[in-house]
């Protein structure tokens, strides 16, 4: 029986039974594979690191989408950086009041491959009339675009790898430049129990640009090592200080079909464990 062992850490790691390899490529100095696993469904790995699985992707995508959108309450324009698998897009499309969704992906091949091999991630969202795909480097796009957005979601790969430019102070500054007043930037920020340095450096770099900067978390089984952190950066401190009744009302009005998100969890996600809080002092 074939196995796929993650090579993220020297001291430990997770390993999957590979029931069938669906797609594999060794191009552009990268090794990308999509395989089937009996528990996690289709699993995509890049350079020895699990990127997404069909079984637990909803936790990640719902956290990174519904928390900023419902905290804001009046989102018309959304920018997704990365996110080529279409999972974030699928969740954003569930919000009826959103008028336009721009996704900036560096390589159209990622989108094409995901449509073919991870169709449940996008679930038809690539055909949504509000959606526009831009093929560009996300860091370059936010530096040059004249457009502005209410929410920016950075759904990047690891900072050790192609996503490196999406963790720089310049990138965060440019995101702020194209946020509407009161808008919010959220980013994938790794697993702090194992990658505390990533959290610390993001905090240092985002603080420079935003009046309010913190993290919220969710536990995604295949991002091993405890909860995953998402950075939260906005000039409007009230966005994450809403009371439960307001969030509940917005959630009910939005009529979202979700499996992870709840209004209670939304507020609770910002309650950080001590070992993460100590890095934010």
């Amino acid at each position: 029986m074939n196995r796929y062992s993650e090579t993220l850490y020297d001291a430990w790691g997770q390993s999957f039974a590979v029931d069938k390899v669906l797609f594999e490529t060794h191009t552009d100095h990268q090794h990308l594979v999509i395989f089937k696993n009996s528990h996690y469904g289709r699993v995509m790995a890049l350079d020895g690191v699990i990127q997404t699985t069909e079984a637990d992707e909803f936790i990640y995508h719902e956290s990174l989408t519904h928390i900023p959108l419902l905290a804001h309450g009046d989102v018309k324009k959304v920018l997704i950086i990365g996110g080529g698998d279409g999972g974030i897009l699928r969740e954003v499309c569930k919000h009826k009041n959103v008028e336009s969704i721009t996704m900036v992906e560096i390589d159209n091949a990622v989108v094409e491959m995901s449509r073919e091999h991870l169709p449940k991630h996008s679930d038809g969202a690539f055909d949504d009339s509000r959606f526009q795909l831009v093929i560009d480097d996300g860091a370059n796009f936010v530096a040059e675009t004249e457009q502005t957005f209410d929410v920016i979601i950075s759904d990047s790969t690891d900072p050790i790898g192609p996503g490196e430019v999406l963790f720089t102070q310049d990138f965060y500054g440019n995101c702020k430049r194209c946020l509407n007043p009161g808008g919010v930037l959220v980013t994938q920020n790794g697993v702090p129990f194992m990658q505390a340095d990533e959290l610390i450096s993001t905090h240092e770099r985002q603080q420079v640009h935003f009046a309010d900067n913190t993290f919220y978390t969710a536990a995604i089984p295949t991002y091993v090592g405890g909860v995953m952190a998402f950075s939260w950066a906005s000039d409007n401190k009230d966005l994450r200080a809403q009371n439960l009744e307001i969030i509940k009302a917005r959630f009910e009005q939005a009529e979202l079909a979700v499996r992870f998100y709840t209004p209670e969890l939304h507020l609770g996600a910002f309650a950080l464990p001590g070992y993460i809080q100590e890095h934010l002092k």
Partner: peptide
């Protein structure tokens, strides 16, 4: 990125280079 997590070093300056990747 290649998945090689074992490294050899022989002095303090080199050890310091691994601080960001220590885990």
């Amino acid at each position: 990125r290649y998945g090689c997590t074992k490294f050899v070093v022989d002095n303090l300056e080199e050890i310091k280079k691994f601080i960001p990747y220590r885990n």
